[in-house]
């Protein structure tokens, strides 16, 4: 029997949801096992880093790399797996675009550590210990991986072949990718986003869309939306218009707005900026022709002021991959 190609999955700064999405393939996980040698997956298997070190370069046919690059260890594993993998795929929103971990790019490393280790109300840390790369202990120096000032995407630290978007990627889309490899179909051009569509979520959303004019925004708890009409037209910031399709419009289907996890649509540089530009185009300020600039500004402020946390709404998933990348310091 011919030797099966190796497949791997690694988690860097992530929540584990990507692994759950993989396991959500249910019985099809057996098809993966039938076609691949599942060589590395810290969440599911006992393979160690030293085992990877021992492999020849390029030995793993495909590695799904999930999680953002938050610290030195994440970067080291990314570099190692790049070397050992034929095809390295950024798997899920964190490794593709930074996702929620990257929202800490709005703060300095010091602020982040202080919040997490000292100010968080559930923390009891009377000695005010904050993790550092080196700590002197009676037994000697302790080393932990250095924490980066900014969360990076996988592409920021190594060469990436493809990315699969989603927080997490939908199982049927994971299967589409695996199946393409099993069927031996031609692989898409390097750099492509795979396991997703080429349009936006609205393409898969069956809600009725009209020409858009938004008079005010609502947070989801403030309104019971009509289940037939476009959520954005009802004033709920639904990111579907500026988010790649492929998920099946799951959130709008259950009356919740898309929050943008499938990331930047094909050909768009910056998801948040695109969303802001689009919303700016459809704000309904009423008849502004006789108004002073101050009055127009006041109306705009009032309208967009009802959107809480601009970065958290517009860049919830894509901040690390955006043009601004975070707050400058």
């Amino acid at each position: 029997m011919a030797k099966k190609p190796k497949i791997g999955m690694y988690w860097a700064s992530s929540c584990g949801g990507c692994e759950i999405a993989l396991v959500n393939l249910h019985e099809r996980i057996l098809d993966i096992d039938a076609n691949f040698d599942f060589a590395f997956c810290p969440c599911l298997l006992d393979t160690k880093k030293k085992d990877i070190d021992a492999m020849p370069d390029g030995d793993i046919a495909i590695t799904f790399f999930n999680g953002a690059i938050r610290n030195e260890e994440n970067k080291e594993m990314a570099q190692l797996l790049r070397k050992k993998s034929g095809v390295l795929i950024a798997f899920g929103s964190c490794s593709s675009e930074g996702c929620i971990p990257a929202l800490s790019n709005l703060h300095s490393m010091e602020e982040t550590l202080k919040t997490v280790y000292l100010e968080n109300p559930t923390i009891d840390n009377p000695a005010c210990i904050i993790p550092r790369p080196e700590t002197d202990m009676p037994e000697g120096k302790l080393h932990i991986p250095a924490f980066f000032d900014r969360v990076k995407t996988l592409r920021d630290v190594v060469d990436v072949d493809y990315s699969i978007p989603g927080c997490p990627p939908e199982p049927h889309q994971i299967w589409n990718v695996v199946d393409l490899v099993i069927q031996g179909g031609p692989l898409p051009p390097k750099g492509s986003v795979i396991g997703a569509g080429s349009s936006a979520v609205c393409d898969e959303c069956e809600r009725k869309k009209e020409d858009k004019k938004i008079k005010r925004f609502y947070r989801t708890y403030e309104i019971v939306p009509d289940s037939e009409k476009c959520l954005l037209e009802q004033g709920i910031v639904c990111m579907g218009i500026a988010t790649r399709d492929g998920c099946g419009a799951l959130c709008p289907k259950v009356n919740m707005p898309c929050t943008g996890c499938y990331g930047t649509p094909e050909g768009v540089f910056d998801q948040g900026a695109k969303m802001v530009a689009a919303l700016g185009s459809v704000l309904d300020l009423g008849n502004t022709k006789s108004l002073s600039e101050d009055e127009i500004e006041r109306r705009i402020d009032k309208l967009i002021g009802s959107v809480p946390d601009y970065a958290g709404v517009f860049y919830k998933y894509s901040l690390a991959a955006s043009i601004l990348k975070g707050r400058s310091r």
Binding site: S199, A200, C202, D203, K209, D211, K212, I241, S281
Partner: peptide, 12 residues
Amino acid sequence: EKCSGCRVCVSV
């Protein structure tokens, strides 16, 4: 192929 039919463009 890319247009999702969201209709943002129509009114602008």
